[in-house]
Amino acid sequence: MKKTTLMIYKNNPIIGGVYKLYLTGDVSAIHCPGQFVELSVPGQFLRRPFSVCDWDRDGVTVVYRTVGQGTRRLAAMMPGEGIDALVGLGNGFDTSLSGEKPLLIAGGSGVPMMLCLAKQLLAEGKTVTAVLGYRTASDIFLADDIRYLGVDVHLTTEDGSAGVRGTVTDAMEDLDYTYFYTCGPEAMFRAVNGVANTSGQFSLEARMGCGYGACMGCTIETVKGPKRVCKDGPVFTREELLW
C-alpha cells in the first residue's frame, strides 16, 4: 500500500450513472488484478474503496457507479484535480490456480476488475471465457473492452434484451472451464456456488471503514475464523467461504 496524490486525467460517464476515471501518478503499489484503491473524496470523512479496472506505468483506471453522496461528489470532480489515495490495497486474485481455461463471472459493479484480470490471464497464455450479467441492454458496459482483449464473452440480461435471458448462471451451464473468478452481488455468489463445477475465487464487496485492516468494520466469518475483507481479502477461495 502506498499513500499518494493521484491526478484526475479523465472522469467521464460511459453509460448512465457509470463513470470511467483515469488517475495518473504513482501506482507502483498495485501488483495484481483484484486489488483496490481508496480515494478521499473532498467533503467525505471516510475514503471510498474502488476495485482496479486496469493499471499501467502511468496510472490506474477505476469504473464506478454513482450510488451515494461520495460517488456523486467524485463524479463532479474535474480533470487536473488531485485526489488523496491509498493505492494497492487487498490481496487480489491468484492466477496461478486458473488452469488452461479460466472462466470470469461478473455482474454489475463486479465487471470492471475482470478487465485487468482477463489481461493478466491472457498474458499468461490462458484461454479466457467470461459471463457478464446486467439488468438490461442499456446497462451493459465494458463488455466490448473485455471482448476486444480476446476473451470469449457471453452476456446475460435479466429482461433478455441482450444475450441470454436470466442471470449469469443461465449462461454457465454449457461452458467448459478449469477454474473460475467472480465478483458481483451476494445472491450471484450463492447462485454461482450452486452450479460451478470447479474451485474458484470470489472477490467480495463490503462497506469498509479504513480499508487496511485496522477497524474490523468489514469482517466476515470464514472456515478459518473471522477475516477482514479489506486486508485478508477482498478475494477469498470458494473453500474458505461459508455457504
Binding site: 471516510l46 463490503a206 462497506r207 469498509m208 471503514g209 477497524c215 474490523m216 468494520g217 469482517t219 473471522p226
Partner: peptide
C-alpha cells in the same frame, strides 16, 4: 465476532461504527 455487518457508516464530519468488540 462482533455485530453483523454493515457495521461502519459515514456521517457528516465523522463516522458511525457498531463493530461490537470483535
Amino acid at each position: 465476532f462482533g455485530n453483523p455487518t454493515p457495521r461502519i457508516a459515514e456521517c457528516a464530519a465523522g463516522m458511525l461504527n457498531s463493530v461490537g468488540l470483535q
